[in-house]
Design a protein around this nucleic acid. Structure first.
Lengths: 334, 334
DNA sequence: TTGAAAGCGGTACCAC
DNA sequence: GTGGTACCGCTTTCAA
């Protein structure tokens, strides 16, 4: 790993000044063809790779966005781990959103820097990443208000989370309440359930919104709603008509468990998810769920960032996306 | 987005020099507690977020690794697109490898920068990313030799690809041949297949190795081997005993199609994958495949990068990982 | 069209 | 223990 060549080396080799080298790359038309060719040749010969740090320092931005996520998909320890070791981390909601983010960012010439969302000290991580990029997206956000303020005052930040409010924070949310309401109503009206359990911890505002809607809709139908989510994954076949999971990942894992124990879905019990991951189509029974427009969420996140960069004075934006009840086999339809 | 404060601002606010501010963050113990507190307070009050560009320029490295991938999971256009629109991009092999990379990198304090592997000009992208990071991993690599040399001479590069050889290039590979050989032998010996098709284009060295092993093993068993992979996804139920897919993603999509057409797997035809994605367990029938240690591949990639950074003079490394035949329902077992 | 030179925001060596 | 200061590599006026 020899010390890498700089503009100075290239300039010297090409017999021009460093300014000319710089211009050759940034505004080729402002350089005489012959000179340009000489510079390019020298650069190629030397194996010149421009330093992004130097450029970033000089121009004041890095052409990259940061991404910090935590989707709570890492399930609680315990039997779940043993039963579903292979499913623990995949499929993930974040991957589908990230795909949209990457495509949108790349198309605009931005690279994506992903930071450790599960770090013990997310705040430090966030500040570190914030120092490297032109914008930050949080999936969802779990930063302290202080850190959030610190970061959001420096670069645009968009949180893909329910209930994110801060003067400098942009947000993208989905209609968790509507989605869960539609889902539960469907279970009640089309399948006549008389009881249901909510599966999965409510660690984020989104999950809490889903749980709240789950309860409200159940009660509204005159069905007793559990006061809290099932503590852990159901261990035996509890007497319930439906397991309403907080995410598809949980539902998919639960499906596994249930089948391993010989419990039939949907004949013995209904199972539903939330998110609409592609994997829900692969499973058998296919998974009834509430679909979020993941790709669009990612694209929108980048859009908000770009808007704010184009016009720093523009007001923060909050976009809420609709979701769609996707009825499939695991609830007994089809 | 007010202009963000710098060390100078913090220094002034705290009534110290910029050197002291710098030390407060890098070597807190070398600064008197009272001074340190003052600096920290000023930094907090001002919302100081250190510029990674400035630091990177000063220290000569960025504490981040680049990641450029292309897993060929985007299937050819045509009917496949229509039939499996939702499955097109997920699940992906790269995500499982990426997970290992991220965990390993993060644990060492490195961030991950992901670049556009599908860019029309991957080489330019690669050079751009290379200028931002301390090491690069290619999943797999599809760069021109020139670009590869240019980049690999500046920072350590590891390619997660079969047949990568370049003096400065480290590589991680899996035993494609052994895996495919085991798989085909199993189909012949345990299921008595007398014909088989290979599904999926052979666009990378890994895929080619799989196809070659597929052919060799078939011929060795006295079974006529197709001269080329099935041109596209099987359109009607061609007469064959087994569809051996080049990846799990393809196999999963094929499973979908087949089921939609009422073809039973494995009763009517056997379907197998390659990779061992977690999604193979979600599908019904569960997918017979050849499992790669994805997480370990990612961890190893980071390890090689770290090794090279610790000792730039150390020779390049090439690690080959074993794979494991995973027999499940889609071939008729269990 | 090209060159000289002043930053950009940190780091770290060397004095004090 | 703290401050002064010379870089790090590139961009970008301003002159020539």
């Amino acid at each position: 790993m020899a010390k890498s060549p700089t503009v100075y080396d290239v300039a010297q080799a090409a017999g021009v000044s460093i300014a000319t080298v710089s211009f050759t790359f940034s505004r080729p038309s402002r350089v005489k063809p012959a000179t340009r060719a000489a510079v390019l040749a020298a650069a190629q010969a030397l194996g010149y790779v421009p330093s992004a740090s130097a450029r970033g320092l000089a121009v004041g931005h890095t052409k990259s966005f940061g991404l910090i996520f935590w989707d709570g998909s890492t399930p609680p320890a315990g039997r779940f781990d043993q039963v579903n070791a292979g499913l623990r981390h995949f499929p993930r909601w974040v991957h589908e959103v990230q795909y949209g983010i990457e495509r949108a960012a790349w198309s605009q010439g931005y690279a994506i820097m992903v930071g450790d969302g599960d770090a013990s000290d997310v705040d430090t991580t966030a500040v570190d990443i914030a120092g490297r990029v032109d914008g930050l997206v949080l999936l969802p956000h779990m930063l302290t208000p202080e850190t959030l303020m610190r970061v959001a005052e420096r670069i645009p930040v968009v949180s893909v989370t329910e209930g994110a409010d801060h003067p400098h924070l942009n947000s993208i949310t989905v209609d968790n309440r509507q989605g869960m309401t539609d889902l539960v109503r469907h279970l009640v009206e089309a399948h006549g359930i008389r009881s249901a359990e909510f599966v999965g911890a409510t660690g984020t505002p989104d999950y809490r919104a889903r749980f709240a809607a789950f309860r409200d809709t159940l009660e509204e139908a005159g069905i007793p709603a559990p006061a809290a989510p099932a503590a852990a994954f159901p261990t035996s076949h509890d007497r319930t008509d439906a397991y309403v999971c907080r995410t598809d990942a949980d539902a998919l894992a639960l499906l596994e468990q249930l089948q391993a124990r010989g419990v039939r879905v949907p004949e013995d019990v209904i199972v539903t998810g939330f998110d609409g991951l592609a994997a829900g189509l692969i499973a058998r029974p296919t998974l009834t769920s509430v679909r979020q427009p993941m790709h669009d969420l990612g694209v929108a996140a980048v859009e908000l960032l770009l808007n704010r960069i184009a016009d720093p004075e523009s007001p923060t934006e909050h976009r809420r996306f609709p979701v769609e009840l996707t009825v499939r086999q695991s609830c007994g339809c089809r």
